[in-house]
Simulated scan of single mutants.
Amino acid sequence: SQPTSQPSPDATAAAYLSAWEAGDYATMYARLSPASRAAIDAESFARRYQNALATATVLTVTTRLQSALREGDRAYVSFQLALDTALVGTLITDTVMSLSLHEQQWWVDWDEGLIWPQLAGGHYFRMEYIIPVRANIYDRAGLGLATEGTIVTVGVIPGQIEDENAVLAALALVTGLSPDEIRGRYAVAPADWKVPIADIPAEVSVDHNDLLTSIPGIYRDEKEGRTYPHGGVAPHVVGWVAPVPAEEWEAYRARGYRGDEWVGVSGLEAWGEEILAGRHGGVLTVVTPAGDRVATVAERPAVPGRAIYTTFDRDFQEQVQQILGGRRGAIVVLDVHTGAVLALASGPGFDPNVFVGPA
Rank of each mutant, 00 (worst) to 15 (best):
G155W: 00
G155D: 00
V156Q: 01
V156C: 06
V156P: 00
I157R: 11
I157Y: 01
P158E: 08
G159P: 02
G159V: 08
G159C: 10
G159S: 05
Q160V: 10
Q160H: 13
I161R: 04
I161Q: 05
I161W: 05
I161K: 07
E162P: 00
E162I: 12
D163N: 15
D163Y: 12
E164Y: 04
E164P: 09
E164W: 08
E164Q: 15
N165W: 10
N165E: 14
N165V: 11
A166E: 12
A166W: 03
V167E: 02
V167G: 05
V167H: 01
V167F: 06
V167C: 05
L168S: 09
L168D: 06
L168Y: 08
L168A: 11
L168I: 09
L168W: 06
L168V: 08
L168R: 01
A169Y: 03
A169P: 03
A169T: 13
A170V: 04
A170C: 10
A170R: 01
L171S: 03
L171D: 00
L171Y: 03
L171A: 03
A172S: 15
A172C: 07
A172P: 01
L173M: 12
L173Y: 11
L173C: 04
L173H: 12
L173W: 06
V174Q: 02
V174A: 08
V174T: 01
T175Q: 02
G176P: 01
G176I: 03
L177K: 11
L177E: 10
L177M: 15
S178C: 04
S178D: 12
S178W: 05
S178T: 15
S178M: 07
P179Y: 09
P179F: 08
P179W: 09
D180P: 05
D180S: 15
D180F: 09
D180M: 14
D180T: 15
D180Q: 15
D180G: 13
E181A: 15
E181Q: 14
E181C: 06
E181F: 06
I182N: 02
R183H: 14
R183M: 10
R183Q: 14
G184D: 09
G184P: 10
G184T: 11
G184K: 08
R185P: 02
R185L: 09
R185T: 07
Y186Q: 07
Y186H: 04
A187Y: 09
A187P: 04
A187V: 12
A187G: 04
V188P: 00
V188L: 14
V188I: 11
V188T: 13
V188N: 14
A189E: 12
A189Y: 05
A189N: 09
A189T: 10
A189Q: 14
A189F: 08
A189W: 07
P190V: 05
A191V: 13
A191C: 04
A191Y: 08
D192C: 00
D192M: 13
D192P: 08
D192A: 14
D192V: 10
W193D: 13
W193G: 01
W193N: 09
W193L: 09
W193Q: 12
W193K: 08
K194S: 10
K194V: 06
K194F: 12
K194A: 11
K194I: 05
V195N: 01
V195Y: 04
V195Q: 03
P196W: 02
P196N: 05
